[in-house]
Design a binder for these strands. Structure first.
Lengths: 210, 210, 210, 210
DNA sequence: GATGAATGAGACTTCATTCAT
DNA sequence: GATGAATGAAGTCTCATTCAT
């Protein structure tokens, strides 16, 4: 006598709410957010068109949740970047941050891109518990790490961790964004060979005259 | 003998085509590209709904032209970044690039942002004569400049101009993009104090241990 | 569990799809197909503007279905023409064909007429299961009948059933078509007195000198 | 100091009015009347969009005139059908009528077809001096001819010229109309072999048992 | 709660007609 | 009179949202 469950859920133990978020997320990852309709999502979820409104205020609400889920899931899949200063060597840790940033942006920016035209979604997304602040967080995290290494004396005492972090993460943006602006699909974005090495060398030694 | 002019053009000597582009550009700058309708544009231009189609293939065509005009006009207003190696000193030249990049991205990214969900517009934009390649050009330009300075011996012979350029321009993105993702209007984006100085110092001297 | 029904369907057990076809058919019969808009049809059906697209690919699709339904219903109401050779007498059977043809064309041609300018509708109509081939079928049917009577010796052994059938059915067109071309509404088409008798006599005995 | 002539008329001595009619007629003959716009006509005439309204009440007016011109020109090109009873032999004269009717309908019906949905055009056309009444005239003309032959004793004294004429001309319709309804372009309409012979034989001798 | 057809505002686009030049 | 851009009503279609079942 408990209320009927959507047929698409038979067997699973997921709530319909989560199921819808997962479906929207899958579409976001697969096709981007460009022409995404409520009906598309319902179809992907194998669920009636209207259910959405039993669980979310409106389309924007669902999209914000899906975006959040997407970011969280990408970050989960990437694992945490090195945060413990003093471990490993600085070069490798930096390289790890760069790898992380590249993969993160390639996976996340396209989803954000399609939603930049939907302020309601962004607003609602901003109100959600920050999965890591969609990239901005990575910058802060890297800055913290660099500062800690400086404390340990593994970086120059007069180095500027904020500036360095901004440049490193920004460089990752720079690889992805121009491609999006030219309409290149995320899957086809190519990373210039030696990209990470060049960045690491430059951020550590600079390019000024000795 | 000549046909009638649009009443909105009274007095001016602009073509209606340019008038429409200007109107679309103004809306783009003022309200973003979010919910921009053909009617909005016509209203802004004080012109009949249908005129648009006497001058452009469709809405996307007009938007692409407006985007192009916007980029061109911003770049014109910013002036050219320093391109002659050997002139002035390197630090100041770098600072000029950074200023340029920041202003450019603050002015341009919001317009692009709203159009990322409209591949047709991006495609058509890509087909237009490149005003300077929408930001990507600045990176290449800076790389060229840095390479030239290296030839002159004003930069380290083993420095990596590509990496440095990517980092500098990327850092400019990094200032703007997270704000857009959070829905902050372009006008309210704040540049961290000492931003340019930090970047210049880092890119020249690095943050590695001496 | 079942979704909502259109309020216009209150009481009936018709599907909204059929309801829409019926409404379009009614308009076709009442006002012709001249300036028929999607909105007209929705209003006639007492239904929201957009429903149409839940049941048909587009306007043309609906019109093709309505045309089909119209033809079918007319043919159903007219009953089958005599097809069994040897039954009754040939004169009366011919007269029946003529009556049938006249009524059919008066009822059908105006509907077709308005759609001749819409190739998409005609194409889609041609793809539907043939209700009786929209008039052409009647000619073939009559030819078959005449051929069978000839086999039985009730018509001249050197008579030409194809030619005769073409002439008889064509004569029915000839009554309707010039009226349409002059803009006479279908309801006001008058059949010349003695029309059927004259045709029967002529087709059987010819007008050549004995 | 006489008013300027349209550039498209340079050299010719046609009035612009006639030039426009000719252009519309050409389009009608070439592409049918389906999606014919005022602009199409102006472009075909190599003339400004608006001139039309200096010479015709509106689009419908021009189309009616063009239709009239088309019919007239087709009939002129076909030459007059045999009208003098007693000349030649009846069979050949009948054949001539049939040829005439077929060519006439193939040339004319498509033009009418596209206009059946435009009652205003038909009404205005009906008000014009009858070029020969677009086919209906041919029927009457044939009936007159047959009646005259009957007077001369070259046809049966109890034959029915009206019925015969209706059947013959109707048969010509029957060849063209079903093709139009199926969307076959006028140029591809095929006339069954032996068509005229079968008709002549049938109308003269009938198909009844001797 | 789930269903999915119905709703209807609103988007883009066409095109006959007007009218300043 | 001729020009042809401007006008704006009207048409088709989409899609977020509602709601009877």
């Amino acid at each position: 006598m408990s209320p009927r469950r959507a047929s698409a859920l038979r067997g699973g133990d997921q709530s319909l709410r989560d199921h819808l978020i997962a479906a929207a997320e899958a579409l976001m990852a697969r096709r981007g957010t460009a022409g995404l309709t409520v009906r598309d999502i319902a179809r992907e979820a194998e669920v009636a068109d209207g259910v959405l409104y039993n669980h979310f205020a409106d389309k924007e609400d669902l999209l914000a949740q899906a975006l959040h889920a997407h970011v969280s899931s990408v970050e989960r899949s990437l694992g945490a970047p090195p945060t413990r200063a003093g471990a490993g060597d600085v070069e490798n840790n930096l390289r790890a941050y760069i790898e992380h940033g590249l993969r993160l942006h390639i996976a996340i920016l396209p989803a954000f891109a399609g939603l930049l035209a939907q302020p309601k979604v962004l607003t609602r997304f901003a109100g959600l518990p920050n999965p890591m602040a969609g990239g901005r967080g990575l910058r802060a995290c890297l800055a913290d790490y660099l500062r800690a290494e400086r404390e340990l004396g593994r970086l120059a005492p007069d180095g500027d961790p904020e500036a360095a972090a901004t440049m490193v993460i920004g460089a990752c943006h720079e690889v992805v964004l121009p491609n999006l602006l030219r309409g290149v699909p995320a899957g086809e974005i190519e990373i210039p060979p030696g990209f990470a090495d060049g960045l690491v060398a430059t951020v550590l030694r600079g390019i000024g005259p000795s």
